[in-house]
């Protein structure tokens, strides 16, 4: 199954439908665009043009390299989709806190884990502000390539502001006991509490177990 392109495509599409149902499809497609497609293209280039056996010409393996690249892309996408489906809904509804505490993690460790997750939105917002500040000083251009070239210069202020922000937030969370409150927090209109998420998670878990059992039996 792990090398069958059609089966992998089917698995990925199933996960994609589940992600669509729970509202995380955009996050997954972003991952596909930023990581999976470049990975597949690299695989195609390496296997078709660079890795040439003695007696072969570049391009001779193209016919075999294409399904290999597709298999790689669908395999990574399916695994990533399954992981996202299982773990993304855990964030921000307090289940993650209970989940970590069930492992007997101390609150200090829970704070570190939660901080690592919540900081992502902060990084994005601050990164945007720093990029705008550089543009305002006439440094760089607003297009995508210009933005990429700005990254080395943005790291220092971004890193420092994130550290400061993390330190301030950690104190704030402790002082206001927000981790405790998050563990008990429920919002009725939050998408992540919907029953379809639990169903989707259950289906993924069952499918995973069945697939693993079948593969092992072979």
């Amino acid at each position: 199954m792990a090398d069958n392109v059609w089966l992998l495509l089917g698995a990925w599409l199933s996960f994609l439908m589940a992600l669509t149902a729970v509202g995380f499809v955009r996050i997954h497609l972003r991952l596909t665009l930023a990581f999976v497609i470049p990975l597949a293209v690299s695989s195609l280039v390496i296997n078709a043009l660079i890795a040439v056996a003695p007696g072969e010409m570049p391009g001779d393996r193209f016919g075999r390299a294409v399904p290999l690249a597709f298999a790689l892309a669908f395999r990574v996408s399916a695994i990533a989709a399954a992981i996202q489906l299982c773990f993304l809904p855990l964030i921000a509804n307090g289940n993650l806190v209970n989940f970590l505490r069930a492992w007997r993690l101390p609150d200090s460790a829970v704070l570190v884990v939660i901080g690592g997750i919540t900081i992502l939105a902060e990084v994005r917002a601050r990164g945007r502000q720093i990029f705008e500040a550089r543009l305002a000083q006439g440094l760089g251009t607003a297009n995508r390539w210009g933005a990429l070239r700005q990254i080395p210069f943005m790291l220092m202020p971004l890193f420092v502001s994130m550290l400061e922000s993390s330190a301030a937030r950690a104190i704030l969370w402790q002082e206001r006991r927000l981790v405790n409150q998050l563990a008990n927090y429920r919002v009725t209109d939050q998408k992540t509490d919907s029953a379809c998420i639990w169903c989707a998670r259950l289906v993924v878990s069952c499918a995973w177990c069945v697939a693993a059992a079948l593969l092992r039996s072979k």
Binding site: I114, A121, E164, S165, R176, Q181, Y185
Partner: peptide, 24 residues
């Protein structure tokens, strides 16, 4: 509450309503 107010929000929840409800 200091000058950089963003540091004095929890950042734990993605909506203003959530932030307020988290604070009780």
């Amino acid at each position: 509450v200091g000058v950089d107010a963003q540091n004095y929000l929890s950042g734990l929840l993605p909506t203003l309503r959530g932030e307020l409800e988290l604070h009780g």
